[in-house]
Structures are given as C-alpha cells and as structure tokens.
Design a protein around this nucleic acid. Structure first.
Lengths: 131, 131
DNA sequence: ATCTTTACTTACCTCAAGGTAACTGGTTTG
DNA sequence: CAAACCAGTTACCTTGAGGTAAGTAAAGAT
C-alpha cells in the first residue's frame, strides 16, 4: 500500500522534511491550542480587567456556564497562565489571577488583533465588490 | 471602578486597554477562527514553502487525507487566502497559491511560533521543578 | 432557622471537525 | 493496454468541545 513514488526522494531528505515540518509546526500548534476555544480569550480579558472571583468572571462573561469556566480555569492553571489563591482573613475568598508569564502571549494577541482588523476590512470590501 | 493613572502607562496596561474594549475582542476571535483547526497552519506553511500541487501538499503534510485537504483548500479559497489555477499548456496542472492578502497572517504565525517555543520551554522547566 | 450565595461537580446530550476507506474519471507512463 | 498517478468525491463513523440541567457542601445574610 506504500507508494513507490516516495522512493524517488532519498530517505534522509524525507525524514528531514518530516522533522522540519514537525519542529516548525508543533510550537505553532501548541500556541494555537493555548489560545483556542470559545472561552480562553474572554476569560483572559475578564481577568485582565480585574475580575478575579469565580462569580465575578461568570457575570463578566454572559452565557458561559460554571462547568466550562471551572474547566477552563483548571486548564489555564495547569498551563501556567492563571494562579488560584484562597484567602481566609475575615471571610474565605477564592481568587484567580493572571501570572506574570501569561503576559508573554501579548505579542500573539496583538498580532491576532492586527490581522483580525485587516481581515474584517478585507471581507467588507469583498462584499461591496461582489454587490 | 477603574483607577485612572492616565499617562505613564506600562505595556501591560496598554494591552489591557486594548482588550478592554469589546469591539477589539471580536477581531481577535475572528483571527483565531481563521487559523484554527488541525490543518490550516500546516497547509499555509506548505504553500509558503512553494508546494503548490495537490499531491505535493499531500506529501508535505504527513497524515492529512485527501478529503480534508480538498475541504480546507476550498474554504481557504472562499476566504480569499488561496487561489486555484488550472494551467493547460502541454499538460494540465492544477496549482494552488497563497494570495497576496494571505501573507498578512505571517506576523501571526511568527508570533505564535515564538510564543509556542517559549511555552514548551516553560512547561519543561516546570516539570523539572516539580520533580 | 432558612434562604441565598459561592464555587464548584456530575451525568447526560448535541453537533461539527475530522478520520476511514472506497470510488471516480481523466491522464500519463512503461 | 495495463498500471500508476492526479485531483479530487462520497458515504459512513468517531471523538471531543461545549451545552443543559441538576446537585452539593460550606459560608453568609436576614
């Protein structure tokens, strides 16, 4: 079932290509994984705005459910983007905050934003032309 | 609610402000939508490297299936990222190429790559510490 | 004392992205 | 003329992200 056309390409180069592809693409896919999903960016924004309690985030993001929020916060914690702290001075408070490290997504977010704005504009112009 | 120290704004706070405005969030989600999925980035990279024929892209991206590739190329064409050209000089050739416009994702991909590499490193170090 | 809030968890469901595998209709090569 | 290659298509299946709704244990408010 293997195609013999592959044998036109020497093995080393085939492996090289696969490795190149992997090493180039893998970090990109990792990064995409980190920011992808319906709720990662909204949650990050809520936290950036200073909403730190579970219920505050819930109110800040309409339509998110507690299940998904809990889930996402756990994952973001595991990935080092969020820290959970439980204070008990007079009352008990659970607070979430962005880590110092999480700010390293900044260039990604800015690049996404720039591109997103251009993209919207492009689609708008295309629609006008097609009318 | 928000405290206003207006003029001497650190970078983090500038980013915070950008994100604060909900209308600025939508382009970010748009941009994420465009690059999301298992195959968009690999296909884009393959095309950036000059692989233009259907079968060339297939070879460049291990494990992609013809169904998904055809599907993705169609969507990318509709979104203005790819152009399909059929030449018939001596033989018939179908070629795909990135549009001028599609190169505007490049900063996004580079930012993602840089972040992805850092992120991997960070996770690796965390694991070492936790052992 | 009981009603509400907080910070979740659990069980079940839905839907679309993607995978599997076979098929097609034309072209080219041996 | 048969086999392989090219550029896909089609039908069916799997998986996981996210949604729905209800439950829970502890703390606070009235």
């Amino acid at each position: 079932m293997t195609t013999n056309k592959d044998e036109n390409v020497p093995n080393e180069i085939r492996v090289e290509r696969i490795l190149k592809c992997k090493t180039e693409v893998q970090p990109i896919m990792d990064a995409i994984y980190v920011i992808t999903g319906k709720w990662r960016v909204p949650i990050t924004i809520a936290l950036m705005e200073g909403n730190r309690r579970f219920s505050e985030i819930m109110k800040e993001i309409p339509k998110i459910t507690s299940k998904v929020l809990a889930q996402q916060l756990k994952e973001m914690e595991l990935n080092g983007f969020v820290e959970k702290k439980i204070y008990s001075d007079t009352i008990i408070r659970t607070e979430y905050q962005l880590t110092e490290y999480s700010w390293s997504v900044k260039p990604v977010i800015l690049a996404l934003r720039d591109f997103g704005i251009k993209h919207r504009e492009t689609l708008r112009l295309e629609k006008q032309v097609n009318k």
